[in-house]
Amino acid sequence: MHAFTSYAPLPRTQIEVLPGNAEIIKGDSLKLTAIFKGEIPEKATLLVRKENRSVWEEDLLTRISNNEFSYIFKEVKKSFAYYIKSAGCLTKEYEVIVINRPVVKKLKWTLVPPSYTRLSKRIITENIKQVEILVGTRILLELESNKELERAWLVWEDARLVKGKVDKKKAFLRSKVFKNREFFIKLKDTQGIENEEPISYKIAVIKDELPQVKIDWPGQDVEAPEKMRLPLKVSLWDDFGFTKLWLIYRINEEKWKKRAIEIPHKNEA
């Protein structure tokens, strides 16, 4: 040390600020701690300037020990700057950056009924939380997030996961449904942050009714001479029509026989 070199004296009070600069997920809380060395003040003041504001707001820190003060920012929604002053001592200005969680901004449903129904697919872009479908319908979901995604899942009520495909801010999910179900969509962005409190969606399944057959004539046991032709009138009904029809019959005590019958255009035979 040079005998004639002068050094600036340390301030009577030094303040260490934790965490200093920080990043925080939107909605989380942040604990601020100020550790004092040297002369310990009776109080410490926090000054905060919120994002897009020019005014500094003041509040007192809470003393938690002889030389430590703290402050908790609850459920932080926006970024802000802050510093601490006490006993004529000022810290430098720090910045807290708020990071948004991924959320579903848009959701498009494509409902594809089973092919045998000959029903057209249905597309829904409205904001819905419940949908009715026919049993066996394929559900295709296309969503758009506020952030670029790393992964996306459809999560059923039994915790079973269906992994989707992602493309930047979009994700594509699909599944076939056979019973009443409930699900939510889980997202993870490229920073590893997941969505929180996702919306729950309900699916109500409509069962396909069994075909109904009514023998209009003769409608009862009959006796007929050998080799006599016996007319038969049958009414058929089904909510989605028919693809195949068989007549199963036997004469006297013979074995049962099965014969394919061409289905009339109007589903009547």
Rank of each mutant, 00 (worst) to 15 (best):
Leu61Asn: 05
Leu61Lys: 08
Thr62Val: 12
Asn52Ser: 13
Glu39Thr: 13
Ala44Asn: 07
Ser70Glu: 14
Leu61Ser: 07
Asn66Phe: 15
Lys50Gln: 12
Leu47Cys: 02
Asn52Trp: 11
Ile72Glu: 03
Phe36Arg: 04
Arg53Ile: 06
Pro41His: 01
Lys37Asp: 10
Glu42Ala: 15
Ile72Gly: 03
Lys43Gly: 13
Glu39Pro: 03
Asp59Leu: 00
Ile64Met: 07
Leu46Thr: 03
Ile35Tyr: 14
Thr45Lys: 08
Trp56Leu: 04
Lys77Thr: 02
Arg49Phe: 02
Lys43Val: 09
Glu57Leu: 14
Glu68Asn: 10
Lys78Arg: 14
Thr45Asp: 06
Ser65Thr: 11
Leu46Phe: 07
Asn52Pro: 13
Val55Met: 15
Leu60His: 11
Ile35Cys: 10
Glu42Leu: 15
Arg53Glu: 13
Glu42Ile: 10
Ser65Phe: 09
Tyr71Gly: 00
Ser70Leu: 03
Ser65Arg: 09
Ser54Cys: 05
Glu39His: 09
Ala44Thr: 04
Phe69His: 06
Ile64Lys: 11
Lys78Cys: 01
Glu75Tyr: 15
Ile40Ala: 05
Leu60Tyr: 08
Thr62Phe: 09
Asp59Pro: 00
Ser79Pro: 00
Glu51Tyr: 09
Asn67Pro: 04
Ser65Ala: 11
Asn67Asp: 15
Lys77Val: 05
Glu75Phe: 13
Arg53Cys: 06
Lys37Val: 12
Asn52Phe: 13
Phe69Asp: 06
Leu61Arg: 07
Phe36Cys: 13
Val55Glu: 15
Thr45Phe: 04
Lys43Arg: 14
Lys37Asn: 13
Val76Arg: 01
Phe69Glu: 06
Leu46Ile: 06
Ser70Asn: 13
Arg53Ser: 10
Arg53His: 10
Ile72Tyr: 05
Leu61His: 05
Phe73Trp: 03
Asn52Lys: 11
Thr62Asp: 14
Ser79Val: 00
Val55His: 13
Ile72Ala: 03
Phe73Asn: 00
Lys43Trp: 07
Phe36His: 06
Glu39Asp: 13
Ile40Gln: 06
Leu61Tyr: 10
Leu47Tyr: 15
Glu51Cys: 03
Lys37Thr: 15
Ser70Ile: 00
Ala44Asp: 04
Glu57Ile: 08
Asn52Val: 07
Ile72Trp: 05
Arg53Trp: 08
Lys43Phe: 10
Ile35Lys: 14
Arg53Thr: 04
Glu68Ala: 08
Tyr71Met: 01
Lys74Ile: 10
Leu60Asn: 14
Lys43Pro: 06
Trp56Met: 00
Val48Ala: 06
Leu46Arg: 02
Phe69Pro: 05
Ile64Asn: 11
